[in-house]
Design a protein around this nucleic acid. Structure first.
Lengths: 211, 211
DNA sequence: GTCAATTTTGACCATTTGGTCATAAATAGC
DNA sequence: GCTATTTATGACCAAATGGTCAAAATTGAC
C-alpha cells in the first residue's frame, strides 16, 4: 500500500529518465512559471514524447511538486548552518554569503521558488509551511539572544532574516532587471554584491559601543 | 493617423469601463500572472461579458501593457525624489521609507511588476529598459559622490539600490512567506520592518570616522 | 532465442482559452 | 419620438493543452 512498497526498485532507465525530466522541468518551470510551462515544452527539453513523459510522472503537477520538494532542503540548509556558538556578526555574514552563492549557482531553483511564493504557494501549501516557521523561529531566537547579550546590534531577528533572503535572492529572481542596469552579467557582479552586502551587514550589525 | 487623433474624446462610459477593467485586471494579473490570468476571470471581476471586455481593449496583452505602463511611474517616482542636496543618510532612509510604503499600499502593483521581471520582462521590453537605467545611473552617481565626499560610507551605489528594492518589495511580493513566518498580517508588521530597515541602513551607511 | 515486463509512440479526446461576429439593446442628439 | 451611434451579448471558432489508450518496440532474465 505504501509508495515505497508498491514501487519495486526503479530500473536504470527509470532513474535516468526521471532525472532528465526533472532537469528539463526545472528549466521550463523556472522560466515560464507553472501555468506557462507546458508538457510539450518539458517533454521536448527532456528529449521525450509527451505520452512517454507521462509514463514517468502521472501529471504536470506531480513533476512540479517533486521539484519543490527537492528545493526546500537546498533553500533551508544555509539557515540551518547558523551556529549559535559562533561569533554573531561572522555567523550572519557567512549566512549572507551562503545565500548569495545559492543565488549565483542555482538561479533556476531560486526562480522556481519565487514563482511559487509570489502566487501564494498554491502548489506547496504545507510542504513549505512545515519546517519553515519552526526553523526560522529557532534561528530568530538565537539572533535575539545575541542582541540581548550585546554581541549584536539590537535588531528584529525576523526582519533581519527577511532582508537577507530578499537581498540575496534578488540577483537570481530579478536578474533581468539587474542586467538592464548593470549591463550583461560579468564576473565581478557577484563579487561586488558580496562585498556590498557583507559591508552593509557587518557595519549594520556590529554591536553598539556601550553608552 | 495618430492614436489620439483617431480616438475621439472618450465617453463617460468608456472612461468608467476602462477604469473598471484595469482595476479588475490588476487583481487578476497580480495573483495569477499573465498566463494564469484569463479573459473570463478579468471580465467577471469587472462585471462585464468577455466580448464586451474586448470591446474596450483589443487584447489581453494590451490590458497588461497598459497596466505595466501606469506602473512604471509609480515604481520609479521614489527614486527620482532623492535629492542630491539633502543629507545623504537621511535621503537614503527616506527612499527606503517611500519604497516600503509602496510595498504596503500597492502590493498588487508590486507583484504584477515582480511577475513580469521574474519571467524576463517579455511583455515590457523597452518600456522598462527606457528610463530605468538612465535614472538609476544618475542617482548612483549622486550616491557615489556622497561616498567620495565622506558623507556616506563607501558603498557600491548600484548594489545599495538593489538591496533597497529587494528588501522593501519583499513584503509585497513574498507576502505569503512572510505570513507563514510571522502569522497573519497585523498592524505592527510594516512598523517593525520600517524600524529594522531604517536602523540597518542608518548604521550601515553612516560615514566612517576618520582613521 | 524466447517470453514477459518495461518502455515508447501515434492517434485521439475533452476542456480551456483568446478572440470574432452578427445582431440586439441602450443611449444620445435632435 | 426618431435616428444614428455606442455598447452589450450569445453563438461560435481555431489553437493550445493536459491527459488517455491501445498497440508497437525495446529490454532483460533465462
Amino acid at each position: 500500500m505504501s509508495d515505497t512498497a508498491r514501487r519495486k526498485s526503479p530500473t536504470r532507465i527509470q532513474r535516468e529518465k526521471r532525472e532528465a525530466i526533472l532537469e528539463a522541468a526545472l528549466d521550463v518551470f523556472s522560466t515560464h512559471g507553472f501555468r506557462g510551462a507546458t508538457l510539450d515544452l518539458i517533454a521536448d527539453a527532456a528529449g521525450l514524447s509527451k505520452p512517454n513523459l507521462l509514463y514517468y510522472f502521472p501529471s504536470k503537477e506531480e513533476i512540479h511538486r517533486t521539484l519543490i520538494g527537492q528545493l526546500m532542503e537546498i533553500w533551508l540548509a544555509p539557515l540551518r548552518k547558523i551556529d549559535p556558538g559562533g561569533d554573531p556578526v561572522s555567523e550572519i555574514c557567512a549566512y549572507v554569503e551562503r545565500k548569495l552563492e545559492i543565488s549565483r549557482d542555482l538561479p533556476r531553483e531560486s526562480r522556481l521558488f519565487a514563482n511559487e511564493v509570489l502566487r501564494g504557494a498554491p502548489h506547496v501549501g504545507d510542504m513549505l509551511q512545515g519546517g519553515l516557521k519552526a526553523l526560522v523561529d529557532e534561528k530568530a531566537a538565537v539572533i535575539r539572544a545575541w542582541s540581548e547579550a550585546g554581541h549584536l546590534a539590537p535588531v528584529d531577528p525576523h526582519h533581519l532574516i527577511f532582508s537577507i533572503w530578499a537581498a540575496t535572492q534578488h540577483y537570481a529572481d530579478f536578474d533581468t532587471q539587474v542586467a538592464m542596469v548593470l549591463g550583461p552579467r560579468d564576473a565581478t557582479r557577484y563579487e561586488d554584491a558580496r562585498a556590498f552586502l557583507l559591508g552593509l551587514y557587518a557595519r549594520g550589525l556590529r554591536p553598539l559601543p556601550a553608552r
